[in-house]
């Protein structure tokens, strides 16, 4: 399965246009989970149902809202929202050049480099292939009722321009649709 990353890199390098989704990604499973660290590292195609199953064995819960347990963590991440942004600690990605890159990590406090793992939250799959995500979890007693994130979409011209420039940082050839 480790070779799947190499396969995905080759796929990205050979493509001129790609639409990322869970089936295409075909990369699922929990990579590391130490309950006492309150951190879970998973492949991006892992379903929310699977995460909840693993967590409930240790009386722990996700700290972000999910509407549907059948979707993958990668999809929730790409769709974005305040609560998942708050949970994310690190990502592994494949950028538009096919490079596999690591940002953030598995620790709660980390200010080395720009916070790319939170920048890509809500990027809708248009910047990079997200292959692996590390996020914070909590004992269930500390997680209150979760509700869908509120999102507003009144983007000023400058924001649109900066987002376009960031798109070309990660995906210079514009292959991610």
């Amino acid at each position: 399965m480790a070779d799947r990353i190499a396969q995905l890199q080759a796929l990205v390098q050979a493509s001129s246009s790609l639409h990322i989704n869970t089936e295409w990604l075909d990369y699922a499973g929990v990579v590391e989970y130490y309950p006492e660290e309150l951190v879970m590292t998973v492949k991006a195609g892992t379903t929310i149902a699977e995460l909840k199953k693993q967590l409930s064995k240790n009386n722990q819960s996700l700290t972000f809202y999910t509407k549907d347990d059948d979707v993958s963590i990668g999809a929730v991440y790409a769709n974005g929202g305040q609560d998942i942004s708050d949970s994310v600690l690190g990502v592994q990605i494949i950028d538009g050049n096919g490079e596999a890159l690591n940002f953030g990590g598995q620790v709660m406090k980390n200010v080395a480099g720009y916070d790319v793992s939170r920048l890509l939250v809500g990027s809708k799959g248009k910047l990079a292939v997200i292959t692996q995500i590390s996020f914070k979890v909590l004992p269930s007693t500390y997680v209150g009722e979760l509700s869908a994130p509120i999102k507003t979409n009144n983007n000023p011209a400058l924001r649109v321009e900066i987002e376009q420039r960031l798109k070309s940082v990660f995906d210079p050839k514009g292959i991610f649709q």
Partner: peptide, 22 residues
């Protein structure tokens, strides 16, 4: 000198989070 307001409720990339620690 251009002003840009970033909020937790913005749909799109996590620009507000990016500013933290920049």
């Amino acid at each position: 000198g251009e002003e840009l307001t970033l909020s937790r409720q913005d749909d799109g990339m996590g620009l507000l989070a990016l500013m933290n620690g920049s």
